[in-house]
Nucleic acid binder design. Structure first.
Length: 423
RNA sequence: GGAGGGAUGGCCGAGUGGACGAAGGCGGCGGUCUUGAAAACCGCUGUGGCGUUGAGCCACCGGGGGUUCGAAUCCCUCUCCCUCCGCCA
């Protein structure tokens, strides 16, 4: 959520930002109009309330029954009048909040202006792409040959875009989860969280998934609970409606969770293999920091994500999103993409974002810089570290051998009981 | 699933229609006293909105709605917690 005071003061800047974001339907003008109406009503309501309060107090002190009755008579009609105004105010406030929740975050000035993903900027490329002197096999074939990925039975169980990991495939994924968590905990300074994967609506509003993106989420209507699309949701909302005491920041959390996405809009796209599925595992890093630190923290977070790719010796690149491809909540965002030689494409395995105070305002996460000081909104950031099915794809395709086997990356071997090859 | 009880400020806890943004205690901060500390005593000690630029006003006693001239207090509803019974592990 944007700061309404900033919007009032610089409406043109906000409108221009919406153009850059390619978000012409963002209800900025509507929110500003509702804000004006809201404040008008608020003043009327408060004036009337103050009067009523004063007279009611007087009634309490008046002993003479006749005088008392007279005062009650004069104020009797105020109740209805106030009720009408309060009703109007409530309506306007609800509409105002609805509008505010549908306005995206403002892009950081450092974000390149562009209209869609074609204008994203590759800011870094790391590692040598391996030269293969034999026919490269895509991961879905490798997975089937090695009997470690069973797409057919996944579909039988749950429908399209579901899959089953088996044997060393399951073990490789489990090794990746444990290893990645350990790297972030032991070497990057994160504290592990194992959160619920079902959350209330309020949590999703906090991170910006609701109200705008409900169609991407699985929802249990009976209990009104939602399956999380990413650990970002429960972990960021850990401190919802809290004021963090002095010296709490920065907070670094890392969480492994399954993630659930309906991917409704993408039917027919990326249907082969396990690149785009409804349920996948992910290790996610989330930071809560002081506003002055968030720029630097973003770069460290990005490096923490890259570090996983480097340690796995997987070639990757870092792409900076242009304004037109920025997510709803991010002020600035980088993707880490692994090279997948089998499908000959870069696979997004991490999305590293600084949300500044956008999520903190929605979720009302504040901190007190010092004892007695006024509260401030924290800055939140997150990044995958990393998303698993795609790391699995990259490992299988990059580490494949002519005989159809797959070498296990060195760092994972201690997590696989010393196994160095899947065959 | 059934029956009952409960939610008050950082914490404990009083308050069942008007003098209550809320007693009292604890904790915290400041001061007096002291060489220093402790004790004692005194004072202060929530969040936000509108407006001003530090006048003032308004809201908040789990959330939302209602009754009333007036609600922490009465009614409805939701959420959460506790106790007992049942069920499942």
């Amino acid at each position: 959520m944007l700061d309404i005071k900033f919007m009032r003061e610089y409406p043109d800047l906000v409108q221009e930002a919406m153009v850059k974001l390619n978000a012409p339907d963002a209800p900025v003008a509507e929110a500003l109009a509702l804000d004006r109406r809201r404040r008008e009503l608020l003043q009327e309501v408060e004036t009337l309330r103050a009067e009523r309060k004063a007279v009611s107090k007087k009634i309490g002190h008046t002993k003479d029954p006749a005088q008392r009755q007279a005062l009650i008579e004069t104020t009797r009609s105020w109740g209805d009048q106030l009720a009408g105004l309060e009703e109007a105010l409530r309506t306007v406030e609800t509409q105002f909040r609805e509008a505010m929740l549908r306005i995206p975050n403002l892009p950081d000035p450092k974000v390149p202006v562009g209209k869609d993903e074609h204008e994203n900027v590759v800011v870094k490329t790391w590692g040598e792409r391996r030269h293969f002197n034999f026919p490269i096999v895509p991961h879905w074939e490798l997975g089937e040959e090695l009997d470690i990925i069973d797409i057919r039975r996944g579909v039988k169980l749950s429908g399209s875009r579901f899959y089953v990991l088996k044997g060393l495939g399951a073990r490789l994924q489990r090794a990746l989860i444990n290893w990645m968590l350990d790297v972030h905990i032991q070497e990057h300074g994160y504290v592990e969280i194992l959160p619920p994967v079902l959350v209330r609506s309020a949590a999703l509003v906090g991170t910006g998934n609701l109200p705008k993106f409900a169609e991407n989420l699985y929802h249990d209507a009976e209990e009104d609970l939602w399956l999380i699309p990413t650990a970002e949701v429960p972990v960021t909302n850990l401190y919802r409606e809290e004021i963090l005491p002095p010296d709490s920041l920065p907070i670094y959390h890392v969480a492994y969770t399954p993630c659930f996405r309906r991917e409704k809009a993408a039917a027919g796209k990326d249907t082969r293999g396990i690149k785009r599925v409804h349920q996948f595992d992910k290790v996610e890093m989330v930071k809560f920091v002081e506003p002055e630190q968030s720029d630097a923290e973003l770069m460290r977070l990005l490096d923490n994500a890259e570090d996983i790719a480097r340690r796995l010796q997987l070639p990757y690149r870092v792409v900076q999103m242009c304004t037109g491809d920025l997510s709803f909540t991010a002020a600035i965002k980088y993707d880490v993409e692994l090279w997948a030689p089998g499908s000959e494409e870069w696979l997004e395995v991490s999305s590293v974002s600084n949300f500044k105070d956008f999520q903190a305002r929605r979720a009302n996460i504040r901190y007190r810089p010092a004892a007695g000081a006024p509260t401030r909104f924290v800055h939140t950031l997150n990044g995958s570290g990393l998303a698993l099915p795609r790391v699995m794809i990259a490992i299988l395709e990059n580490y494949q051998e002519p005989d159809g086997s797959v070498i296990v990356p060195e760092v994972l071997r201690p997590y696989m009981g010393g196994i160095d090859s899947i065959c």
